[in-house]
Design a protein around this nucleic acid. Structure first.
Lengths: 211, 211
DNA sequence: TGCACATTTGACATAGAGTGCCAAAAGTAG
DNA sequence: CTACTTTTGGCACTCTATGTCAAATGTGCA
């Protein structure tokens, strides 16, 4: 099955990239339908039709209706984690987290084909729809596990170390909360970066929990 | 509809308490079935039958199949939050969180009719079943919001303050991670208290994130 | 006790979610 | 063009979840 196209070592194969593209397209279509006519009023058949595929095929790309929006939520975050791994090793953990985040936001969200306005609209739906909220939380829970190896490497610790896990959890939570506040706030709010930066700095000192 | 029975000001009415009891019973039956024959192999009809009620009645107590286990997860946590509100105001935030947690664990889990072994078994199922994991995360996300007023009052801040929200989020995350580690670890692990205490103390100083 | 009332429960019908199965279609290698 | 693999679509089916309405149950009051 190996194509003659040259591909880097970690680079995904052609078919895998096609698959990702399809997922991204379906995500966009689903998000549009959800925000236009509501989550419940949108059936999986609608999404499949809007994506030009049969119902059965839809379920070969997504396990469930809610999961269509997961790639939209995950887009920026995945990139964040990857950039953290590649960040300057001399940087402190918080600075590295922050630098990685700043670098990722613009680049990655654009490539996922979703703008800030749409993301906000989606995040506001999340509040009221249990299934969507679950996806949102799940994406962050997954991120937590992905952050661990990166943090462990940077601090010279084991990924299973409690402190590593907690650092991943708290940094992750800070970002999530910043995003939730950004989504809930008025349109006047600046890009999410600022909120994330403030939140990360706060948890780094223990914030209100500090002795 | 008011009964002649005297009831305290905040005390729930008789029918409300009956309702809670029923929910607890159904939760227990569901948890038993899930761990015995697996989550997917258990239909809602099975749960309803085991609880001695019709299918339609089940859905008047729980919105969805997964939610049957939410009360089991929430039992200890709710009590934790309440005890925090009642804790000695002179205590530091972390100490108060800790004291409240210690006080709640034994008392509350017993009243929910679930022991540590069952809770562990359930938590291990959570790893592999998206729907259950969603419930687990949701319970903690709810806790986050419930913690906020209590923390705000203790620190003399607004519940919408970013630092309050972050403190709630990080403390909450610490507890969740401690519980997850406790569930994943060997049976030899001591009660969850120790794990929670260590985790809370770590995040209070910023842990690995500390500058 | 018995009657009028509200609330709870159960049975039925139905739409939508999600999956197994197999055949048609499309892409690939030779 | 042919043989082969992968992807897609159609069909049937189970289960989840909800609206509707009637029967059962409980409650207040005479």
């Amino acid at each position: 099955m190996t194509t003659s196209t040259r591909r880097g070592p970690g680079r995904p194969s052609l078919t895998e990239r096609r698959r990702e593209d399809t997922r991204t397209e379906v995500s966009g279509a689903a998000a549009r339908l959800f925000t236009e006519r509501g989550y419940d009023a949108t059936t999986v058949e609608d999404i499949a039709a809007a994506s030009g595929m049969a119902l059965r095929t839809f379920y070969r790309y997504f396990r469930a209706k809610e999961e269509t929006i997961a790639p939209l939520f995950a887009a920026g975050i995945r990139d964040w984690v990857q950039r953290l791994a590649e960040a300057d090793p001399d940087l402190g953990l918080v600075d590295a987290l922050l630098a990685a985040y700043r670098g990722s936001v613009r680049h990655s969200r654009a490539s996922a084909g979703i703008d800030d306005g749409q993301l906000r609209a989606l995040l506001r739906m999340v509040e009221s729809h249990g299934a969507l909220r679950a996806v949102w939380l799940n994406v962050y829970r997954d991120t937590e596990d992905q952050l661990r190896p990166a943090i462990a490497a940077r601090c010279g610790r084991d990924p299973d170390d409690l402190d590593v896990q907690l650092a991943a959890g708290t940094a992750n939570t800070a970002v999530r909360i910043a995003m939730e506040r950004w989504a809930a706030g008025e349109a006047s709010a600046r890009s999410a970066d600022d909120a994330v930066a403030r939140a990360l700095k706060s948890v780094a000192t223990g914030g209100l929990l500090a002795p």
